[in-house]
Write a protein that binds this DNA or RNA. Structure first.
Lengths: 279, 279
DNA sequence: TAATAAATGAAATTTTTATTTCATTTATTA
DNA sequence: TAATAAATGAAATAAAAATTTCATTTATTA
């Protein structure tokens, strides 16, 4: 029997062989099957005392399932725990380590596959980590705003322009600050306390975005921010701040999670307005 | 200031004191705020090398926030990860049971979760169904084109604008047809046989996109098309046609798969050009 | 039941990890 | 700019972990 590479696999193996294990190993098996978090986090010593066996038995157990040591087995539990929440940055790095074959890494289909994988993970993480009340707060701001200004430059421009499109379809007064004709400031000059500004900016933070956000903040407008770090310069002015951990393939940062967030906001707003029409 | 007892508390403290920290400690602060999973799992050595500081700095950081050592701080991250996983699982189950409950279906967090799920599926399907040779062909066209014109209106504008941004960063001569000043035709008037046109359009197909594509085709330019059906009007003129099946939440069609495709094209092109710089 | 094999656990050993120390660099202040 | 303080990082040390060893117990079988 080959060594298990996922937690599910391992659990199946344990159940299959349970009857043949010695008394002590059965005791370990029970603990292992029922305490995933403990296995992921605790040291051998702690696990041993909780499962009421000596440490050496744990190592015997791991070796009985073809692992080179207890730590190797432990990795399955960690991987499993992380899968639901991992920042895809870490995963991508891991993948690089394993996948040293340059020829394969550069194949377009492989890149597409990697992006799909990485983006899935990033979006699921976003969904798991974004608290209900932040979303509610953002939607509340958007639904009450007289005018909504969208700021997103360079890399973030596409996201901002999508949201503008969606908001317009919801018949909201949405204005995309695009700096056409160099008129950044002019485009925001009418912003007031009844308005909302949604800014999107990722490192390296576009200077104009920060300046404009600050200006809007001083004008008393409500601020929603989408950014990539808790200490983004934009976070300071924000009423609601979404920190999005985007996926990466090599050095290439994705945008999917941000797009997903923005779409969700638009759809939730549509429901709130009772306008469930197509976007 | 008392020692933090939850991750949120710690994050607040870090943000509050960020400005007063030394350069190295700020560097640690950034890493700590943005890499929860790494903090929960990795050893000091690993974290230190990823944050690019010596191990001792990490311990200084922990002590600066009143912890007795780094491990004490680490516990907050572990606790948080475990709690998060639990609530995530619970939520998922809850929604399955109550799928028909309108109140829940309209909750923003549910919408976000649904989009994440649906988009993951769509992207993975895209990756699985897009043949290598189509990708190769598209990249070949892009890499040989003298000028690249991007057409995407309304819903597709954000995707087109993202690709324009990416191509510009790869130092390709990319031009976004945005119809500024009503000059659609004029923007495309210079297109010739050595150029490529990439059109993006989904049902209902924007009339201008179809017209422009046709014109470009007659001018002898290579055509890459991203659309949602084999029988899209654009498919006719195309040299390479990607059919993307986007995810939907209720009637709301997503864009993630298209974005994923477009990013993959850009990255693959970057590799081909040997310019693996950040996009 | 005696002889043998398998399982077990305490303790020693090895390995890894966290922490401290201290010489050096960098920033601040007089 | 000299003097002083703060910050830094390499390397030593301390602590803790994982693993192995081996004497002892328990089970198996001739």
């Amino acid at each position: 029997m080959p060594v298990a590479t996922t937690l599910t696999e391992l659990q199946d193996q344990i159940r299959a062989r349970y009857g043949d294990l010695s008394k002590r190993l059965q005791q370990v098996a029970c603990y292992v099957l029922d305490n995933n978090n403990s296995l992921a986090f605790d040291t051998i010593k702690v696990i041993a005392s909780q499962a009421d066996v000596p440490p050496s038995t744990l190592i015997r157990f791991a070796k009985a399932f073809e692992f080179t040591g207890f730590n190797e087995m432990k990795q399955l539990f960690r991987k499993n725990l992380v899968e639901e929440t991992v920042s895809y940055t870490d995963r991508a790095r891991l993948f690089q380590d394993l996948e040293s074959n340059q020829k394969i890494r550069e194949k377009p289909s492989h890149i597409l596959q990697e992006f799909a994988r990485v983006n899935s993970q990033a979006m699921n993480q976003l969904a798991a980590q974004t608290p209900e009340n932040k979303l509610e707060a953002a939607i509340d701001i958007l639904s009450k705003a007289e005018n909504i200004y969208l700021i997103g430059l360079r890399r973030s421009f596409s996201i901002a322009s999508y949201l503008t499109y969606a908001l317009r379809h919801l018949e909201r007064r949405a204005f995309l600050i695009d700096g056409l004709g160099g008129m950044f400031k002019e485009q925001l000059s009418m912003v007031g306390p009844n308005d909302a500004v949604l800014s999107i900016s990722f490192s390296p933070y576009a200077e104009e975005t920060v300046t404009l956000s600050e200006a809007a903040s001083q004008a008393g407008a409500k601020q929603i921010v989408i950014t990539d770090s808790q200490i983004s310069p934009l976070a300071t002015f924000s009423d609601v701040c979404f920190v999005v951990n985007e996926g990466k393939v090599d050095a290439f940062r994705s945008q999917s999670a941000s797009l997903c967030l923005v779409q969700s906001l638009a759809v939730a707003l549509a429901f709130k307005q009772g306008k469930a029409q197509e976007i």
